[in-house]
Write a protein that binds this DNA or RNA. Structure first.
Length: 937
DNA sequence: GACATCACG
DNA sequence: ACGTACGTGATGTCT
């Protein structure tokens, strides 16, 4: 028998292991119900449980908990055992009782044995089940269970984030741990130890070494018997620390002879208890689950259909004869919708529109959304508009295909869009602003963008409306694909659909967005987000919309000529490279290139590999081999030109707008973890400048026309100034206040020489340290960067922190704050959450610590320039200038400046940028004018 | 779609 | 023993 066949499938769930994982999976977006209870753990656990029930169809099942007191036996054998384990988070403790209620509602037995941990109980039961002819699945992500795996007892690692669950049998265990047999798992765990379980392990032995030793010696004991075959430190460790190794092995061993009952009848899977299910999920406010589990009939109304029947009384909702429609769509076996009545209405006649507008004008807040023929907001045609001002109710106003006719209908709603009293709610409102500008409507503030609101609440989350609807409303909206098909050349177009087909979709979007606003608004009203949202992010939306619409002019002929030149150089380099290689290959393929350099030409014996096992050929590695073979400099040159041609020179002319011939990027406001903007389609925030050949490309970005010039204004050292301000370090603040060259001033302090005697090398090293500080670098990082020894790097860093001692205090404080509160924040209270800050894994924790240092710096700089943009924009509007703000590149603003406004604009910009914030360190803006972007630097 | 590489601040 | 500086987006290869 190759695969075990059995009718009896037993699932044993390691409760705490699943709960812990569920809790931390929601660390970035904890689920909080209206009572303020964090329900992440219960929600995640329930998801996993339902997943197992639905997908695996167990015949028998139990959930095993660790008892409150923990295990007795292991504590006796090793007192430090679990003594240092982090305390169970509050959010888990408060969820244990509800989770047990949920399991009980499912009629699933809960097993808890005093004095024994869940793994011991599950281990014992799996052995008993095996004898009774069961196929057992141990549900846990914990690798320690590997030792229990047999052909008939498997590990079941629940899926996460859409990933499918993994089932590990003996074969998979041996592969994952690189062992010959499952019997070696305990030796393996004992050798390498486990910091989170406080199993010490052998000093200096990690997973790789553990696998290697066991492949060679078979067991831990056998290693001790043959220490003569080891050498160096390893030999010493295995000769002197045998008892530690054996103890670790015993700590890792899961007990399989616990006294526990194996009651087949009790383990049998039963139907859930509907009353208990309803009660517990209502308590926790998990709306979606009850329906999922009990599978009740679904009803939605299709108001659009009502209209077809000619029975629509638009606003006398009670008189509407609602057509009930059974929805059978299923998602992973469950029904899609809840039983809920919605009232979505199609508004088509002038009378109905008038009635709708009157209603809109009476509201304090209205959610709106536009439907269009495509995603290109500068040219897409409007297909319709939807509105909602009450959960469950929405209206859809179709607009005709003909532009002028559509414009006339949009015009009817101008009083609404231009009202300064009604709060206009939308998801990603920048898009709708741009669409409406095509119809000559400028939407007036106040506005509330639910996408931006959620970005501030949870910056690293997904921000799409569909995702938020599922997360916060347990509601899966009609997908756009249902309407117009999947992405690709056959994708249809909203313009080809009848209003009746679009209405429910459009209404639903407005309805959902309205409901999301009600959930997010209270969060935004809190101290730390209110000003950030209303005074910074929302005002910025209109500015970005204007910048995107404005675009920037490029000289395509210049780029085409340059493309030819690069093409010729590339062809020549390619021939040379292949000749030197003595073979034909694809120079663009890092994989082939690596093989050519290190296998075929054998340029270096100690070539580095990437994590996927290929030879690494990145620039810094090639740079270190530049003198090893004449092919290397050719490849570096080839790479440079190829990048420029394929990323910038060739695509840019093709991205010119067909109507105005300008390049229109999109600025994304809800993408970065730190609060910066990002730019795409095309990305105009990474146009080359560092190399001679790259700089050429900047010449192709030109002023609008002969009446204009480009002006680039950038903040000088904004991030270092912010460190100085945040840390209030006397020495660093003084350096900025006196207007010194900060890198030279730093060098003078670090090396103890007079400012005038600072050498070029010293200044450049100081500059590297100043940069490194921003990123929370280590001595290793600096030594790599400067090509000096780690000892030297450490000396420089030590000296730096002696001179700027408060900077060090500040950095330590940032990490401490992250540990304590779980987040760090910018000067405008923008938060970044760092759930990994207390990770037991030093690498993971290191990343979080560097983020704790970097995020407030990078994020505060982003705050400053955003405020500057708002100030500049307001002043420009006040002055009524022809000049326009067109780009933002993190610390730089680019303008089309009308030649009559040069002096005015220079003063206006400098003033707005330098007084955007008032910190103890002055902000300095520098600017330059030119006919193209290169000259403006 | 993942990965490697490289453009910018 | 581990890995090693923060934040992005676009391109080409390869599966």
């Amino acid at each position: 028998m190759l695969t075990p066949e059995t009718d009896k499938k037993l699932f044993l769930i390691d409760a705490y292991a699943i709960i812990f994982r569920a809790y931390f999976a929601f660390a970035k977006n904890p689920r909080i119900n209206s009572k303020g209870l964090n329900t992440s753990a219960a929600f995640g656990f329930t998801n996993s449980l339902i997943d197992v029930l639905k997908k695996e169809k167990p015949t028998h099942i139990a959930v095993v908990f660790d008892p409150p007191g923990g295990s007795v036996t292991r504590k006796e054998s090793y007192e430090a055992y679990k003594a240092h384990r982090n305390e169970t988070p509050e959010g888990i403790i408060t969820n244990i009782e509800p989770i047990k209620r949920i399991i009980d509602a499912f009629n699933i037995p809960i097993i808890e044995v005093e004095g024994y941990e869940a793994d011991d109980v599950i281990g014992t039961m799996s052995k008993m089940a095996e004898k009774a002819g069961y196929l057992t699945y141990m549900v846990t992500p914990d690798k320690d269970y590997g030792q229990l795996v047999t052909e008939r007892s498997l590990m079941y690692k629940p899926g996460r984030g859409g990933e499918p669950a993994q089932i590990w049998g003996p074969k998979e265990i041996c592969e994952k741990f690189e062992l010959d047999s499952v019997d070696q798992v305990i030796d393996y765990l004992g050798l390498m130890g486990d910091a989170s379980d406080n199993i010490p392990g052998m000093p200096g032995i990690g997973p790789k070494t553990a696998s290697k030793l066991l492949k060679e010696f078979g067991t831990m004991e056998n290693i001790f018997a043959h220490t003569d075959q080891l050498k160096g430190k390893q030999k010493e460790v295995f000769e002197t620390q045998q008892s530690l190794g054996l103890l670790s092995k015993e700590l890792a061993r899961i007990i399989t002879d616990v006294t526990v009952e194996f009651n087949e009848e009790q383990l049998e899977l039963n139907d859930p208890d509907p009353d208990k299910i309803r009660a517990v999920f209502a308590d926790l406010e998990f709306k979606g689950f009850t329906q999922k589990i009990l599978g009740e009939e679904l009803v939605v109304t299709a108001a659009g259909k009502v209209n077809e029947l000619g029975q629509l009384d638009l606003f006398g909702v009670n008189d509407v004869e609602q057509v009930e429609q059974k929805v059978t769509a299923e998602v992973s076996g469950f029904k899609t919708f809840e039983t809920e009545t919605t009232n979505y209405q199609l508004v088509q006649t002038p009378e109905e529109r008038k009635e709708l507008l009157d209603l809109l004008m009476q509201q304090k807040e209205v959610c709106f959304d536009t439907e269009t023929t495509g995603l290109d907001s500068l040219h897409a045609d409007m297909v319709g508009m939807s509105f909602s001002f009450k959960a469950g109710e929405a209206f859809y106003v179709p607009t005709p295909v003909n532009y002028e006719a559509a414009k006339a209908i949009v015009e009817e709603f101008r009083p609404f869009f231009e009202s300064g009293d009604i709060l206009k709610i939308a998801h990603n409102v920048k898009y709708d602003l741009k669409i409406l500008r095509r119809y000559n409507v400028r939407v007036a503030y106040p506005m509330f963008d639910t996408m931006i609101a959620h970005y501030l609440i949870s910056p690293e989350s997904k921000q799409g409306m569909d995702f938020l609807a599922e997360f916060y409303l347990q509601y899966k909206p009609i997908s756009i694909e249902t309407l117009i098909g999947k992405k690709g050349k056959n994708q249809g177009n909203m313009g080809d659909l009848a209003p009746e087909e679009i209405s429910d979709y459009a209404c639903e979007d407005a309805d959902i967005t309205f409901r999301l606003k009600q959930i997010f608004a209270p969060e935004i009203e809190k101290d730390h987000l209110k000003s950030l949202f209303y005074d910074m992010e929302m005002p910025l939306v209109e500015i970005l919309a204007d910048m995107e619409r404005e675009g920037i002019a490029i000289d395509s002929q210049f780029l085409k000529d340059y493309s030819n030149q690069l093409g010729n150089q590339l062809a020549e380099l390619e021939t040379g490279i292949k000749e030197m290689a003595g073979m034909d290959f694809n120079v663009d393929s890092p994989k082939q290139l690596g093989d050519v350099l290190f296998d075929h030409l054998k340029i270096s014996a100690k070539a580095k590999k990437t994590k996927t096992g290929q030879y690494a050929t990145s620039e810094d590695i090639l740079q270190s081999l530049v003198n090893a073979h004449p092919i290397i400099p050719k490849i570096l040159e080839y790479r440079e030109y190829k990048k420029l041609k394929s990323t910038y020179v060739d695509p840019l002319p093709t991205m010119k707008d067909a109507v105005d011939g300008r390049i229109h990027t999109q600025f994304m406001q809800t993408v970065t973890a730190t609060g910066r903007l990002s730019s795409n389609n095309p990305n105009l925030q990474n146009i080359p400048i560092r190399t001679e050949a790259g700089r050429e490309i900047r010449k192709s970005f030109v002023a609008k026309n002969g009446d204009y010039q480009l002006l680039a204004a950038d903040y000088s050292q904004i991030e270092l100034r912010i460190i100085a301000a945040l840390s209030e370090d006397k020495n660093m603040v003084a350096a900025f206040q006196s207007g010194e060259d900060i890198h030279a001033a730093t060098a003078s302090k670090v090396y103890g020489v007079a400012l005038k005697d600072v050498s070029r090398e010293q200044r450049s090293a100081a500059k590297a340290v100043n940069f490194g500080i921003i990123y929370g670098q280590s001595a290793f990082g600096l030594s790599q960067n400067l090509g000096i020894s780690r000892t030297e790097a450490k000396q420089i860093i030590d000296s730096y922190f002696e001179q700027y001692s408060t900077v060090k205090t500040y950095m330590d404080g940032a990490i401490a704050q992250a540990r304590e509160k779980g987040y760090v924040e910018t000067i405008y209270k923008r938060r970044r959450y760092l759930p990994d800050i207390n990770s037991a894994n030093a690498v993971v924790r290191g990343f979080a610590e560097r983020n704790a240092i970097n995020a407030p710096i990078q994020g505060s700089a982003a705050d400053v320039i955003k405020l500057a943009m708002i100030a500049v924009y307001r002043e420009m509007k006040k002055a009524g200038v022809k000049s326009r703000l067109i780009l933002q590149v993190h610390d730089e603003l680019v303008f089309d400046i009308h030649k009559d406004e040069v002096e005015l604009m220079k003063n206006l910009i400098k003033n707005a940028m330098e007084s955007a914030v008032n910190l103890i360190v002055p902000m300095k803006a520098e600017m330059e004018l030119g006919n193209n972007w290169l000259e403006a630097h």
